[in-house]
């Protein structure tokens, strides 16, 4: 499996560390209440399909990436800098 880092180009999977579903970019407000925080911390979707994930290019440029990956085919549709995604969503 190879991921195309927006900065470094196509690199082997062994250069990356997987973090999980890209929920860290939409952190609830501190006073959003226990329900929202419970969901943010513990509840995850487990789709057989497309999912946005956070990957860390640890052995490369040290950027956090949002990888849009199909969980059954492993097809990767899009790789973006997490910083750009957060900026676009207004969370950074």
């Amino acid at each position: 499996m190879r991921l195309t880092c927006p900065l470094c180009g196509a690199r082997d999977r062994r250069e990356f560390t997987y973090q999980g579903e890209a929920v860290a970019l939409s952190r609830p407000d501190p006073d959003a209440g226990p329900e929202a925080w419970n969901t943010y911390l513990h509840l995850r979707e487990n789709p057989a399909g497309w999912r946005d994930e956070l990957w860390y290019h640890e052995q490369g440029c040290a950027a956090w990436l949002v990888v849009t990956r199909h969980t059954t085919t492993h097809e990767v549709r899009k790789v973006q800098l997490a910083r750009d995604v957060a900026k676009a969503e207004g969370t950074a």
Binding site: C8, Q59, G60, A62
Partner: peptide
């Protein structure tokens, strides 16, 4: 310049 692994070292 490339940041990468060299013999499994960053």
């Amino acid at each position: 310049v490339a940041r990468t692994e060299i013999a499994h070292m960053a």
